[in-house]
């Protein structure tokens, strides 16, 4: 558990960000310092402590299953960088 094994190349790939080499160098250095700081949590004894994912957990919140008004196709596509025939246009995925 230490910042020294941060593989910035791999993490950037997971995060889908094409970093430049300069960015990789700078981020790697900065994040090592931050991760070293975070390592202090290793000192806390959490035996038997439940994790908190929300301050006030509310499980299985549902609404009545009734049709309502939603965005029209046109409105939903209005901000798309590229669309056609009522669809988002993306690069070819399968040959």
């Amino acid at each position: 558990m230490a910042g020294t094994d941060l593989n910035i190349e791999y993490i950037a790939q997971l995060a889908r960000i094409e970093l430049t080499q300069d960015e990789k160098d700078e981020l790697g250095q900065q994040l090592k310092a931050v991760i070293d700081y975070m390592d202090q949590l290793g000192r806390v004894d959490v035996t038997g402590v439940e994790p908190t994912s929300h301050p006030f957990p509310m499980d299985n919140v549902t609404r009545a299953d009734e049709p309502g008004v939603s965005l029209t196709n046109e409105e939903a596509l209005r901000n798309a960088p590229s669309s056609s025939n009522g669809l988002f246009i993306v690069p070819r995925i399968v040959e």
């Binding site: 558990m1 981020l27 290793g42 439940e50 994790p51």
Partner: peptide, 29 residues
């Protein structure tokens, strides 16, 4: 970018328990 990379790291395989789950427990404390 810094925060997305950091967040991706603390959730990545092998580190999630040590950072993310641990932090959720400290949040409880």
């Amino acid at each position: 970018k810094r925060r997305i990379i950091l967040g991706t790291y603390v959730l990545s395989s092998g580190y999630c328990d040590a950072y993310y789950i641990k932090a959720q427990k400290v949040r409880t404390l």
